[in-house]
């Protein structure tokens, strides 16, 4: 639990250092050192057994033993990580494309909007991971159930964001396209889609995290491989340090994916609309 928080904290402070510069990096590094020292000291001080709370050194050891192996080794993190990433990325792509497609249809057509909106909101309120056991029954313990649940979770943020973004076009820009007798497809492609780009990237950012979550949850319910399996196996033998190590891997992966999305947004949404 606390290592996940640590990962989130470093992610946030890293974002801030973009502006704060070197001194900000130094401060957050110092904070991490203090945190690790306090963690280590309190485990020893309160004599916590390793199956409740391992020391940072034990976590590091577990992490290293999973990383410093042949990538094809069955005890390393690489194979399960590959499996988890593959399934969650596939699910994310399917879910995002589906969300964008339905979001676009809703934004373009009042009929589709009226038809879909109430159900979309109802489903939005449902905790979708609760459907996961049902999906496993239908799709089995293989990759199919992981991809399905990931796609389901990635679908909604993209649906909501693309709908909102495509509707948020300045009316003057639509007037311009109408005055040029542009077709609806031309207006969609040339004005609405670029206009919605910041919304789409925000949706993608969420879809990415949700897709990873979906795959892990599906793996908890039963799977041959994946980071979820690594975690449940470590838990079964009270290897708490191993659980922590797997969580750190997932945290780092999450931060990296977030960075990729932000970098892609910076490259693609280059016209400085956000500077206003």
């Amino acid at each position: 639990m606390s290592s996940a928080t640590t990962a989130a904290n470093t992610g946030r402070s890293r974002k801030r250092t973009d502006k704060a510069g070197a001194s900000g990096t130094a401060i957050s590094a110092a904070g991490l050192v203090v945190l690790l020292a306090a963690w280590s000291a309190s485990v020893q001080m309160f004599h916590l057994p390793p199956y409740i709370m391992p020391t940072p050194q034990a976590v590091w050891h577990a992490l290293w033993s999973g990383l410093a192996v042949n990538p094809a080794s069955r005890v390393g993190y690489y194979l399960p990580l590959w499996s988890t990433m593959k399934n969650s990325m596939l699910g994310m792509v399917i879910g995002s494309v589906g969300g964008l497609a339905l979001g676009s249809a809703m934004a373009e057509s009042r009929l589709v909007e009226k038809l879909v909106m109430p159900y979309a909101f109802a489903l939005q309120c449902l905790p979708k991971v609760a459907i996961a056991p049902l999906v496993v029954i239908w799709a089995g313990f293989g990759d199919g159930s992981k991809i399905t649940i990931s796609a389901m979770l990635a679908f909604f943020p993209m649906l909501v964001n693309s709908f909102a973004g495509l509707r948020a076009v300045e009316p003057e820009r639509l007037d311009l396209m109408r005055s040029l007798s542009a077709t609806p497809l031309e207006t969609y492609r040339i004005v609405k889609l670029p206009n919605a780009a910041p919304y789409l990237f925000a949706g993608l950012d969420m879809a990415m995290v949700y897709a990873l979550l979906g795959t892990i949850v599906a793996e908890f319910l039963g799977a041959q491989q994946g980071m979820g399996v690594v975690i449940t196996q470590a838990q079964a033998v009270s290897d708490v340090a191993g659980v922590f190590a797997a969580l750190i891997i997932l945290g780092v992966v999450g931060i990296l994916m977030h960075a990729v999305v932000r970098e892609a947004e910076r490259k693609i949404v280059h016209w400085g609309e956000r500077k206003k």
Partner: peptide, 15 residues
């Protein structure tokens, strides 16, 4: 097509 419109505040596409 015989009409060109100049909008308030230019109304250019920023991308």
């Amino acid at each position: 097509r015989e009409v060109g419109v100049v909008f308030q505040a230019a109304n250019l596409l920023p991308w």
